[in-house]
Design a binder for these strands. Structure first.
Lengths: 255, 255
DNA sequence: ATACATGTGTGCGTCTGAGTACATACAAGC
DNA sequence: GCTTGTATGTACTCAGACGCACACATGTAT
């Protein structure tokens, strides 16, 4: 299969992208939508950070110290269980914010949040954010709406987990990731996917194998490459489309 | 088994409870928590309504015209699928509000909402609610926090649907209902439970049978009676406890 | 009393996926 | 080169649940 030559941490050598704080390069859609009046209050409080692969941002039951506006890369929200099992219940990229409970006055996270792929984010201390939030109505609105969208996503996934088999869910998951990560090659091991889908690694082998046989994806040793997105959409359950449909509808409805 | 004599719509003959708008009898916890300044604005806009069994309050994709503050009874939020399958993704009673998307500026519902058991609610037209919402900060806060709590619930159910078997989920569901409906006898058919749990009716027969054999419940022809709640808690998966735990924690954290 | 609708018990055959285990393939370091 | 750790392929048994179908029970209506 075609291998892409992306090394582990290649962009360390490109310092220019480290200084994205000066606006033009902001990837996060919430930040980009803010009026100058609000972003000029918010940006001085934030720090541009680089996120590593599988970095844990929040842990269930622990106090949330920082929120994150992702610019690129991807955050998975997982439930954790005593026996070590995990299930992904929501997924967000640059369209969202990580740390929603604090917006509503709660201090702890109910979920584990881990990054997938490398990425960058603007990190903000919760105290700082809350201090300016009441003076930033547009930011507040955006965050609240995003929380509703994310909630809708998780309800759809709740149903998906009940009704659909591993291959459908895997295809659905790849599509959701693909949308957010913006590249065809994703750094994914079967073990990681098993944790996302709440299933066995061996089941992922089977599902990924059949997707590859169908020509939707190619993969090898921790790299998945999407080669035929259209086909992948056919193989995914309708949950992917349902989420996108509702998101779009709400976007249009919100004045 | 012991039958309770509750007829279908018995309380029609008790007009006094129809006029619960004058405060003392308000069951909804959000309404009860409001300062007089806000409730005096809100109550004139609302209508006390009686909800029938399995009444559909919202339908996915349709515009939400009214919101509901339940006083008693129970609302199930379901995803619907083209083939008629449904899965419950969240459950609320008098602690909440039905119609959350409108709070965030969205107009349509993503989910079907159906009542379970009979109940009463304060119904409010969306337009009216939105008109006063900005002048009712406490109401706004309560609604937003509730939306977060409900979202957390649905994430836990997403995992539950993936990891736990029918009997555990049934026990969990009965506990959640029991908490909210406040009676030991619930009007539930196996067919209805199957739709809530997203499974076959026959699977419910099996699960309910084993719960009855264990002495946790008794049931017959559309009536389930919880006879040993402690035992039921043992048989449920940890998801029930996890939801309650997090809810309580957040309640304490919110100043 | 009879007929009917509704609710429940049960019995197939089939299949997905869980749990587990082990073998192979590849990559990086010595 | 060789070793080691990680990633993947595969095989096996078993339990749970699926789809389907039908019989029986119970309460209501005529």
């Amino acid at each position: 299969m075609a291998r892409d030559a992306t090394p582990r941490l290649p962009r360390r050598s490109n310092p220019s992208s480290d200084r994205a704080g000066s606006d033009g390069r902001v990837g996060n859609l919430i930040l980009r939508s803010l009026p100058r009046k609000e972003s000029s209050q918010l940006f001085p409080l934030m720090e541009f950070v680089r996120l590593k692969l599988h970095q844990v941002l929040h842990e269930p039951g622990e106090v949330i110290r920082s929120g994150y506006f992702l610019n690129d890369g991807l955050g998975s929200l997982l439930t954790t269980h005593p026996d070590g099992k995990t299930v992904e219940v929501a997924l967000t990229g640059r369209e969202g914010f990580i740390g929603l409970p604090v917006i509503f006055g709660f201090k702890t996270s109910a979920l584990r949040v881990v990054t997938q792929g490398e990425g960058t984010a603007y990190r903000v201390e919760v105290d700082s954010l809350l201090r300016i939030l009441s003076q930033c109505p547009e930011l507040e609105t955006q965050l609240q709406r995003f929380s509703m969208v994310l909630g809708m996503q998780s309800t759809q996934l709740a149903a998906c987990n009940r009704l659909h088999d591993v291959a459908e869910r895997l295809a659905r998951w790849l599509l959701m990731s693909h949308d957010r990560i913006g590249m065809d090659a994703l750094p994914l091991t079967q073990e990681f996917l098993a944790q996302m889908l709440g299933t066995r690694r061996a089941s992922v082998t089977g599902a990924a194998g059949s997707l590859q046989k169908a020509g939707s994806i190619e993969y090898s040793r921790g790299r998945v490459r999407i080669v035929n997105r259209g086909k992948l959409e056919e193989e995914a359950c309708d949950c992917y489309a349902a989420i996108e449909r509702q998101k779009k509808r709400w976007q249009e409805e919100a004045n």
